[in-house]
Design a protein around this nucleic acid. Structure first.
Lengths: 202, 202
DNA sequence: GCATTTCCCGACCGATCGGTCGGGAATCAT
DNA sequence: ATGATTCCCGACCGATCGGTCGGGAAATGC
């Protein structure tokens, strides 16, 4: 998969490592609050050396957002527009989203914090908007086939369900006590069936 | 309630207006991305005049965070530590949180985006952490009294439920088609009873 | 050995940042 | 009118920002 090329010349850092450290810093302090000098210091090199590996600060952001968007698109492609009853597909999308979010937590976290200040950010927001629209379509389909309570607006439910999923980035720690599998199961149960015992509308 | 003092001297802007415009800008572009010159331009005065109304940029952030935290604390005080069964109190806290979030959406949005870069931000994060802990206690009480499914970790459920509530700030528009009352009802139903019809665990 | 490639650095650039300063203009109470 | 109060402004400050530049050091292939 990942081709390990023979590296010539003086050994040193590589772009992938720079990107990973950059994303972590962006998440910890916020994109704007992290200077290229900060990032260079964290990597243990000078700012000018850093620019040998990366063309600009914004490019780092773009690479991270691309990663998150590619993964999200794959998950939605795999289930949102498929055949068969919508509700099981919705369950699966929610579960897959949780696993994806954990596997690519740094990149996804960054994506969810984009505000649209630059062209790069606006493009990412637009791609995300399209993904959200497809997810909403799946929730609508589940409502139409009668799998959801008919006293709730499917558009709002969709925002809430995936808002819950996305909120994971704010607290979940893959190294913590909660396993990914248990987390995914709990999210599906909470977001769709509800945590209350003997749930009754009204 | 709000005492309308007689204003002497040359008329002009007041701090409350400055704060409101500042919060809106901070939300739209992010705190770091908004310069005091931007804010001054938005208000129609010079940067130096702006500093007549406000001592620093950080003070603006602090005022906004204080507003959000005061409201959140009031809601939690009103129900989280009260007497009686926990589940109805949990329902009420969720509903009140939604209404609070809509009523103070700008300030709450700002609070939810704080990263802890400065002392002011860290203090706000700490206050918020305490509020979250009390909410988790309420969910735990509901689980202990048997109101919640016992196959789900109450700590995780608490994070998820209030993560869903907090995600409202990312999309809800009070001027849009969804009324606050309908929204609050939908959130309670979705977060606690679940949107699925005939919810069944497993 | 030596050219090539890769990586690193200190010094520097124009722009912008949050914030200050001294003074001028409008409005108040008297 | 006049003095106090309130508000406004242009000019300026040191610090920091993202990014550039020319050149030196370490590894590779020959």
């Amino acid at each position: 998969m990942t081709e390990t090329r023979v590296r010539r010349g003086r050994p040193g850092h590589d772009q992938a490592t720079v990107l990973r450290v950059a994303i972590d810093l962006f998440i910890a302090r916020g994109y704007d609050a992290v200077s290229m000098a900060d990032l260079a210091a964290e990597l243990g090199l000078s700012k000018s050396s850093l620019y040998h590996h990366v063309p600009s600060k914004e490019r780092l952001l773009e690479l991270a957002l691309d990663e998150a968007l590619a993964e999200l698109t794959a998950v939605v492609d795999a289930a949102a527009d498929g055949a068969g009853p919508a509700y099981p597909r919705l369950r699966r999308v929610v579960e897959d989203s949780v696993r994806l979010l954990v596997a690519h937590q740094p990149a996804v976290t960054l994506l969810l914090r984009v505000r649209g200040n630059t062209a790069v950010e606006r493009a990412a927001l637009e791609r995300r908007r399209r993904i959200d629209a497809r997810l909403a379509g799946l929730v609508r389909a589940a409502a139409t086939e009668g799998s959801l309570r008919d006293d709730l607006d499917p558009e709002v439910v969709s925002r809430l369900v995936f808002g819950m999923v996305n909120s994971l980035v704010e607290w979940y720690d893959a190294a913590g006590p909660v396993e990914v599998g248990a987390l995914a199961r709990t999210v599906v149960a909470t977001a769709l069936e509800g945590p209350a015992r003997g749930a009754s509308p009204g």
